[in-house]
Design a protein around this nucleic acid. Structure first.
Lengths: 147, 147
DNA sequence: GTATATGCAAAGGTTTTGCACAGCC
DNA sequence: GGCTGTGCAAAACCTTTGCATATAC
């Protein structure tokens, strides 16, 4: 908790240095997304923020997310369900998503690095494997489908 | 051209066998998507179909796309710009998309197979690398960014 | 003739935008 | 006080759906 609050303050400091103002709404949004493990959709984030601070408008959330992404604090990824935001340090999460049962898993950093290396051999393309999920069948569903 | 028309007829035959009716609209939509190299968005497809047959409704296009996907003739992929449809035989196309300049490239079948193999080692997950694009930086943009 | 497909219009959901007002610095 | 951020409302997209009509078989 203490660590997390400190973290929120860091972000606020970064924004301040950019000449941005710290409104209660922004504080609430930043706090909520820093508290989030993994990824969250703009819609879900809006709902959560509104629990803590009713009246916060969805457009404010969208504007703040864009801001935090520009500042290099957040990034977004595309999953089957749409766009999701996560803290940049939580990247490395290469998302595996089962198209049959919806199960989600992540590749380890080592696995991700091995993949990246392979892709880099294709004309020097430097992949960001965190930006899009990887769809497919988990081991369980694979068995069901083959049966 | 001859090969393509024959191809359209094959699809029509498949649909017919499923008890589906071949309306002029469906013919036009099938013809257009079979003529398409790579992928096309529902919106773009609608526009093209309407050039050949004005009055075709977007909802008809969406319904037909869903139908063709159920029949195993088409599949869709998620690119930065949204959903795009392509013929199943054109899968294998693992999409590389440069987030800086928008350049698009594809991995070869061999490269895709190597990637899949690597991912399969993660708990037996069988990836469909064609379903989501792979975002990143092309070699050119990489140089620009590093400079 | 009958079941299915289409067009139309409306609804649904997400995201963006213009604008007046509020409030941070 | 001035400029930035917010809420509100509307618009912009994209996609889906209900329903009456048209039409393939």
């Amino acid at each position: 908790m203490i660590a997390r609050d400190a973290y929120v303050d860091d972000v606020i400091e970064i924004l301040r240095r950019r000449g941005l103002r710290m409104t209660p709404q922004r504080r609430a949004i930043v706090a909520e997304i820093m508290r989030t493990q993994g990824h969250i959709s703009p819609t879900a984030l809006t709902r959560k923020v509104q629990e803590a601070m009713p009246g916060v408008n969805a457009s404010t959330v969208y504007r703040t997310l864009a801001l935090l992404e520009e500042a290099g604090i957040l990034a977004h990824a595309h999953l089957e369900s749409g766009a999701e935001y996560h803290r940049v340090e939580e990247a490395g999460h290469v998302h595996l998503s089962c198209s049959r049962c919806g199960a989600e898993d992540d590749l380890s950093l080592e696995e991700a690095a091995a993949l990246s290396q392979l892709i880099e051999q294709h004309r020097g393309f430097l992949p960001d494997l965190t930006h899009f999920a990887i769809s497919g069948l988990c081991a369980d569903c694979r068995r069901h489908v083959e049966a």
